[in-house]
Simulated scan of single mutants.
Amino acid sequence: MRPMLATSGDSRTGPPTGPAWAHEIKWDGIRLLAEVRDGRLRMLTRSGRDIAVALPELAGLADVADDLLLDGEAVAMVGGKPSFGHVVDRVHTMSATAAQKLAATRPVTYVAFDLLRLDGMPLDALPWSARRAALEDLLDGIPRVQVSPVFDDGAQLLAATAAQGLEGVVSKRRSSLYAEGVRSPDWLKFPHRDTMSVVIGGWRPQTGTAGRLGAVHVGLPTTDEDGMPLCDEEGRLRLVYAGRVGSGLAGRAGEQLAALLGEVPRTAYPFTTDIPRAEAHGSTWLEPRVVIDVASLGITPGEGRLRQPSYQGVRTDLTPLDLLELS
C-alpha cells in the first residue's frame, strides 16, 4: 500500500473555499501508514520500511482492531511546535532498548488523518467524509495518538498556521476517494516555507580539516527520453546538480549525517554536468542513496542552483526514485 499524495496548490489564490472542501494542518512529521494484522503493529514509511521498533510509545494502536490500516504522521513536539529534526532522530533508532529510552524523553505522537481498512473491509472507495467520520469514532483514548483536526475555513487556517510557525495547510475534497500512490488534485497542499527534497551525491570536508563534514553536494534524479530514470552504464542513478549545502550542518546534525554518509558506497562522479574544479576539490563522491530536505530561497534561473540552502534533516521515508514522482 502506498499513501495518497497531495498536489501543490496555487499560492496566489490560496486554499479552495466552500462546503465541498475540508482543511487540515500540514504537520511537519514523517508520513507513516499504521497497519495492524493479527495483533502485530507495523509502522510503514513511504518506501515500505517497517519502523515500529523505533516508536514503542505507539504500541497502543495494536489494540484498536484486529485488522486496521491508518494514514497519518509521526510528529515530535518541541516547545509546542512540530520538530522535523526530532522525529527524524527517532525513526533512525533501530535498537529497541534505545527506542524505549527516547520514547520516555522525546516521545512522538501519531496524528491520524485517514482510515483505509477496518476489520477486513477496505474503505478507500468511500468518500473522505465517510472515512473521516469512522476515524473519529475509533481512536479515542489511545496513548500518543490523536486525530488531525479539521477546519471549514482554509484561508483562516492558513493565516493561523503562518502566525504559529507551522508548516502549512492541506485541503481535501470531502467527496474524494483514496487513490493509492497517486498525487491527486483532490488533496491540495499549501506550505509556508520553500522546502524540497534532494539527493546527496557527495560531500567535501570543512576547511582546514581532513574529514569533518563541511558541505554536501546535492542533486535531483531525472529521466531519459523514454521516461525512465537516467542511469550510467553500470545502472547507477545520475543526478542533475542542484548545488552545495553547508548551512545547518554544524554540531550534532552534521555529525549524524557524516556517520550516515560513511556507510554509503563511494562511486564515480554522479552528476550529469561538471561543476567548477574549486567546488569539486577535496570532495568524495557517493552513490545517490540518501535523501535530505533543504530549505532555500528557491532556485536560480538558468543555473538551477538552490539559493542559500539550509540542511533540515534526512528523509528516511523517501528514496531517490520517489523524487521523480514528486516533480
Rank of each mutant, 00 (worst) to 15 (best):
S175C: 01
A179W: 07
E180L: 13
G181M: 07
S184L: 03
S184D: 07
S184N: 04
P185W: 00
W187V: 04
W187Q: 09
K189T: 08
F190L: 06
P191F: 02
H192L: 10
R193M: 11
R193P: 00
R193E: 15
D194N: 14
V199T: 11
I200R: 10
G201Y: 08
G202A: 08
G202V: 06
W203G: 11
P205R: 06
P205G: 09
P205S: 11
Q206K: 15
T207S: 14
G208F: 10
T209K: 08
T209L: 08
T209N: 09
A210Y: 09
A210D: 15
A210C: 00
G214K: 00
A215Y: 01
A215H: 00
H217A: 15
V218T: 01
T222R: 09
T222Q: 10
D224M: 08
G227Y: 03
M228L: 13
C231A: 15
D232I: 13
G235Y: 11
R236Y: 12
L239H: 05
A242T: 02
A242N: 03
V245T: 06
G248W: 04
A253M: 10
A259I: 04
L260Q: 13
L260F: 02
G262F: 10
E263I: 02
R266L: 10
T267P: 00
T267L: 07
P270V: 07
F271R: 08
I275W: 02
P276G: 09
A278S: 14
A280E: 08
